[in-house]
Structure formats: C-alpha cells, structure tokens
C-alpha cells in the first residue's frame, strides 16, 4: 500500500477512535452530572409526552430557531437536512457485502449538495456581514464552516463536473475501512480534499462546538417536565446533603451545614 493510503487509513481509525471515546466520555459526563433544579423554559410541557414532542420539534424542525430568526433557520435547517441526506447517500460506499436495494436508490440524494452549499454560504455570510455575529465568532467558527464548504464543494466537483475518481477504488477503500481489508484509495487531489476534512471533523467532534448535537438532548431547559409542585425533583448531592445533616424535626431545623 502506498504511504498516502496508509496515512488516510490510519487517520480514519484515529478519528473514529477519538470520536467514539470522546463522545462516549462527554455523553457519560452529561448523563452523570445532575440537574439539581427544575429549570424548563417556557413554553414548558407539563407531561413526558410533551417533552418528547418538544425535543422532536427541535431536532427535526429546528422549531425554536424558526421562531428566532427566519434566515438563520433557512440556512441552518437546509444545511443540516442536506447533511443527513448526503450521509445516506454515502452509506453505499461503506456497506460491506451485498448492498440493500434501498441504498442503491439513493442516487438522487446527491442533489442535497445544493441546499448544503446554499445553507453553508448563508451561515458564513451571516458570520461575516452581521456585525453582532462577527463579534462572537472565533477563528474556529469560520474554519469549521470553510471545512464543510470544502467537503461539499469537492464532492460537487466530483459528482457534477465529471471529475469522478475511480469509483471501484473508492468503494474498495471505504468498504475496506469497515471490513479491515484495507486497500488503496484514489489519489486525485480533489478526492483527498474531500475526505481529509471529513476525517478531521469526525476527530474534533467531541472537543468542539459540534457537541451541540448531543448537547440539545441534555439541556434541562428543554428536556424537563414542568411538574415541580407535583413531584419532588432532587439531585443526589442535595439529597446527600439533607441526609448528612440529620433533620431535627422537634426543633424544625437542619443541623450542621
């Protein structure tokens, strides 16, 4: 195998390793960190199914973003939706063995690249031209958008401008990563420019603002039921505090600190 193939192969596993361990670490950390108080934000659902509906609306439709800023919603939602569609479009490359019929019919999903780029350019434009958003942007915020634009643009150039790399090589390389039967990758610059930022983003996911993905599910403002009067909500550390300080019912006071 050529050096470059070895590099990208190792880079892939390195990224996936960081992604899995890092993300697991963060999710476990979020899970284990108590939310000691009920802080659901209005309009707060009064039931569990209400919370489920609320989160579904946020995750699938970006409902709050729609309420907050129509343009940002348009850019953000189309970009994320396109990302999901393009993920499915790419599954066919990685699928080991016989490919399910459904994955062979994902060809039209390639057009999702247009809303992807549209959304990204919109978000970048907002970051550059709206003074408030420019103020809050760090270099990494631009860089991340540029990297995804690079992914989208290189992909589009390959797909729509007849710059296809050898698709058999692509398939063997991608499938090889999953089945551990490694093989050469196509060495066209445009292909490398496509996969490098993908691997890079996978690697930085758990150490960057991309954590907003899992984060939304752990936001107490969104995932709590508004039922504090009916059900006592208490964290372990607060309960411990209560137990360690023996309640003196006769004098109606908590002893100790």
């Amino acid at each position: 195998m050529s050096l470059i193939s070895i590099f990208f192969t190792l880079f892939f596993y390195f990224s996936v390793l960081i992604f899995i361990t890092g993300l697991s670490y963060k999710v476990v950390q979020y899970w284990n960190t108590p939310a000691p108080l009920k802080i659901p934000i209005a309009p707060a659902p009064l039931t569990k199914s209400g919370v489920f509906l609320r989160l579904a609306k946020e995750v699938f439709l970006f409902a709050t973003l729609f309420k907050s800023s129509k343009w940002t919603w348009l850019f953000g939602w189309s970009f994320h939706l396109a990302l999901v569609l393009l993920f499915f479009r790419h599954l066919v490359y990685f699928w080991p063995g016989e490919i399910p019929l459904i994955l062979l019919k994902t060809e039209p999903l390639k057009y999702a690249a247009y809303p992807l780029i549209f959304g990204l350019i919109g978000l970048l434009g907002r970051r550059i031209f709206v003074d408030r958003v420019r103020y809050i942007s760090a270099p990494s915020d631009y860089l991340m958008l540029l990297l995804i634009i690079l992914i989208g643009a290189s992909g589009m150039l390959m797909t729509f401008a007849n710059n296809h790399p050898n698709m058999l090589l692509v398939k063997n390389f991608a499938e090889g990563l999953i089945t551990f039967q490694w093989s050469e990758l196509p060495k066209e610059a445009i292909f490398l420019a496509h996969i490098f930022p993908v691997f890079f983003l996978i690697a930085i996911f758990p150490i960057s603002k991309l954590l907003h993905g899992p984060g939304i599910f752990f936001a107490p403002t969104l995932n709590q039921v508004d039922d504090a009067r009916k059900k006592r909500h208490i964290s372990n550390w607060a309960m411990q505090k209560e137990k360690n300080t023996k309640i003196d019912l006769d004098h109606n006071q908590d002893k100790g600190s």
Binding site: T33, S68, V133, I136, S137, K209
Partner: peptide, 24 residues
C-alpha cells in the same frame, strides 16, 4: 459548579455561535 449543574456543563460545551440570541 459544572460537576454539580448539568446546565452549566452542557451550556458551556454546546453553543454553536449561531448568533440568534444576540438581538434578544
């Protein structure tokens, strides 16, 4: 604080700087 309040830990990590709060 961030080990006792999930809100603090999660909110510090997850902001993607979309900026829609800036005028609120």
């Amino acid at each position: 604080t961030k080990s006792k309040y999930r809100s603090v830990q999660v909110f510090l990590d997850s902001c993607m700087k979309c900026g829609v709060c800036t005028d609120k």
